[in-house]
Amino acid sequence: MANIALSADGHGHSAAEVAHKNSNQKLAMWLYLASEIVIFSIMIVGYAIWRLNEPDAVSNIHKTLSIIPVTINTFLLLSSSWAMVMGLRAIEMGNRQMFMRWIGATALLGAIFVAGQWLEYRELSHMNLTLQRSDMTLEDEIFESSLEISQVDGGYEVNVLNQQILDGLDLSYDTERFVEPTVLTEQEYAEFEQAVTTEVVGATANFGMRFYAPTAFHGFHVVVGVLLALQVLYLGSKGFYDDNPIGVELFGLYWHFVDVVWILLFTLIYLV
């Protein structure tokens, strides 16, 4: 190397600089999302392990969670992702008006999702599902749907409609007796009631924190997303993205990520 040089000629051209900055920002966004994935994965894996250990409790819970509003909500969130794609496409083609509409739709759908989630939380909290360990009003429901109990002479007659409820009951007498309607003494019935309650409550009582932590954390991301969408909308209206829509693209990445996480959570918590 005889050619000793410490510096190169001139500076890069501005188009190249913009492209460079864009690629920087995209890489940073991907890295940020990677770390987000990790946080979510802790909650998702935590839920999944509990789910595997408590299949009975989950089937009871699924009976109580109302799936239809949530499904609609999910659909709305998915649509918002589509609106996002359309919005990005519009601004890339230079159509600012369409862009404003689509991003507006994205923000609106996101807001509706948050509202829907809020309503769901309210209903669940009426059912006594809280962050603390607590039994949902499930207990009564399970007694009603699975057992027929009537007071007779010398105790209670118990007719088990759903034999599954007997699984894992810890009783001092044999559960074979419940194949047919059985008369239990007061003492035996007290034990039976206690055991059923423990079995139901014990497993479902921890559902609250495992449900609220990931969904609320996700909800928080949607709220942030809606605020970002409004910001994008505001800047877009000023023509900020006309030359370089990278900001919209980055927001899009975030929004799709939030969407994908919801699909995972929805499948895991409400479906399986």
Binding site: L31, A34, S35, E36, I37, V38, I39, I42, F217
Partner: peptide, 14 residues
């Protein structure tokens, strides 16, 4: 740091 620190964040959140 990018891949591991979020674990701390998750654990501290819980």
């Amino acid at each position: 740091a990018v891949m591991a620190t979020p674990f701390l964040a998750g654990a501290l959140t819980l």
